[in-house]
Write a protein that binds this DNA or RNA. Sequence first.
DNA 1: TATTTACCTATCAAGTCAATAGGATTAAAT
DNA 2: ATTTAATCCTATTGACTTGATAGGTAAATA
Lengths: 135, 135
Amino acid sequence: MISTKARYALRVMVDLIQHQEEGYVPLRKIANRQEISEKYLEIILKLLVKGNILQGLRGKGGGYMLIRKPEEYTVGEIIEITEGSLAPVACLEPNAKNCPRKGTCTTLSLWEKYNTLTHDFFYSITLDDLINGRF
Amino acid sequence: MISTKARYALRVMVDLIQHQEEGYVPLRKIANRQEISEKYLEIILKLLVKGNILQGLRGKGGGYMLIRKPEEYTVGEIIEITEGSLAPVACLEPNAKNCPRKGTCTTLSLWEKYNTLTHDFFYSITLDDLINGRF
DNA sequence: TATTTACCTATCAAGTCAATAGGATTAAAT
DNA sequence: ATTTAATCCTATTGACTTGATAGGTAAATA
C-alpha cells in the first residue's frame, strides 16, 4: 500500500510545477496550499532533495525548486524515493535476504510478474502526463 | 505491500489442492509441510473459512478441505479476504471516508487506474493457473 | 469416554506511520 | 553586523499493524 509520504510527494511535485515561474518556493507556501503539516512536509522534502529530485536553498528568499523539466520526472522514481521501494512483497525488495523456499515457491513468479507490471506502470508516467491528464 | 497473511494463504491453498484426494487435511499437516507456525496458520485458515474459501470440520478425522475446483478460485479473492482489500491507497479502500480533495486531486485518477490494473491482474489468475505455471 | 481436531479470545514485542518538538545552520536583506 | 527567513538535523510521540504466542472451549469420531 502506498502511504501518504509518496502521495504527498506527488502532490508537492505537481504544486511545484504549477508554481515554477516563482523560483524558489518556501516550504510554508506548499504546506498551506496542499494542507499538509509543515513539519511532516519537511521530512518529505528532505527525501526529495536527497534523491536528486529537488534542489533546496536556505536562507531568506530560499525554498525548493525543480531541477528537471516536468516530462523528465517519472511517477515511479518519486514513489521509490519516498517509499523506499515499490516491491509488492518483502522477498522482492532490494535488500531482501535470500529466501530458502525460492526454488520450490509456487507463488514467486506471480509476485515477480506483478512487480514488473507495477514498475512498468509507474515508470511510464511522467509528472507532465499527470498534470495534463494524459494517462 | 502484500503481507505474509495473503502469501501464506496462497501457499496453503496450493498445498490443499495438491493433497485434495486425502479429504480433510488437518492444520498441523499443512503447517509442517509449509513451515508455518500452527498458531499463526490458525488465524489465516479461520479467515479462509469465514470467506467461504474453505470448509473446516472439527473433531477426529477433521481438518480443512476445498469447496470449489482449483480453477474456480482466483488469486485476487484470496488476497482480498486475507488482506482486507487490495486497494493501493487508503482513499480507494471500501470503507474510505470521502476525501475533501476529491474534486481537485491531481493524483486520484492515477491511483484509480493502478487499482484497476491490480484488480484485473489478480482476478485473472486462478489457483489452477498458479499450479500449472500458466501465467 | 477419551482423543483429536477446529474454533475462540486475549495478549505480546517489534516495527511502521503520521506527526510533532526544538533546535542548528545558512543566506539574504536591512 | 544584525536581523530575518528559510532549510536542515536529531529525537520523540501515540496510534496502529504485523507476526506470533497462550490458553481454553466446542465438536466429532473411535
